[in-house]
């Protein structure tokens, strides 16, 4: 017990009995489950596979900067129109791209093909598409920008750039939840 005495903050843990330890652990699981539920719930409501994205490049400046957060929806009954900001995926690339639709052709049966461009880019996105691909189709779209929140996503970018930071933050949160004793 000598070692433990040096860490005053562990007093809470020491005073716990087995029942309380289990309780704390379940509490922790609950938080993880709630976060997952919120994310999955948003996916259902927005019909988008990723309802929140962080802007990773400067191609839409000055509208969106690196680290800004976008809220997306992907309702399939709403047609895509020129001028809209869409988030799309290109075959063979993992990272989705946020750009604006500048040209669109829609057939009688509703199938569309369209071309995108970043506001801050001088040329359209044909160079970014897969080799030989000239147009995007509806199924390439992951979501359409509906809401905007500045700066918030910078945390995600930092965590991706410095993975140690991610583990540190997650570790601290986990330890806090596990050893912090509910006062009752």
């Amino acid at each position: 017990m000598k070692v433990l005495e040096q860490f005053e903050f562990l007093d809470d843990v020491r005073r716990m009995d087995a029942r309380q330890v289990i309780y704390q652990f379940l509490n922790f699981c609950m938080i993880v489950a709630s976060a997952l539920m919120i994310w999955k719930g948003l996916m259902v409501i927005t019909e988008s596979e990723s309802p929140i994205v962080v802007v990773l490049s400067g191609s839409m400046e000055p509208a969106f900067y690196r680290g800004d957060l976008l809220l997306l929806t992907n309702h399939h009954d709403e047609p895509i129109r020129a001028g809209e900001i869409v988030v799309f995926k290109i075959k063979g690339r993992d990272i989705p791209i946020v750009h604006r639709v500048i040209k669109l052709h829609e057939k009688e049966d509703g199938t569309t093909k369209f071309l995108t461009k970043g506001d801050n880019n001088r040329v359209d996105d044909r160079g970014l598409y897969a080799p030989g691909q000239l147009w995007l189709k509806r199924e390439d779209v992951v979501g359409r920008a509906r809401g905007f929140l500045p700066y918030v996503g910078i945390v995600t970018i930092l965590m991706n750039d410095y993975p140690q930071l991610k583990y540190a933050v997650l570790g601290c949160l986990g330890i806090y939840v596990l050893i912090h004793r509910e006062t009752n």
Partner: peptide, 25 residues
């Protein structure tokens, strides 16, 4: 913060029920 202005030409043709082409922004 910003307004993104764009001028669109919209028309229908034999091939496509709807065409939208941004001419200027």
């Amino acid at each position: 913060k910003e307004i993104f202005l764009y001028l669109t030409a919209e028309y229908s043709s034999d091939v496509n029920a709807l065409n939208q082409v941004v001419l200027w922004d």
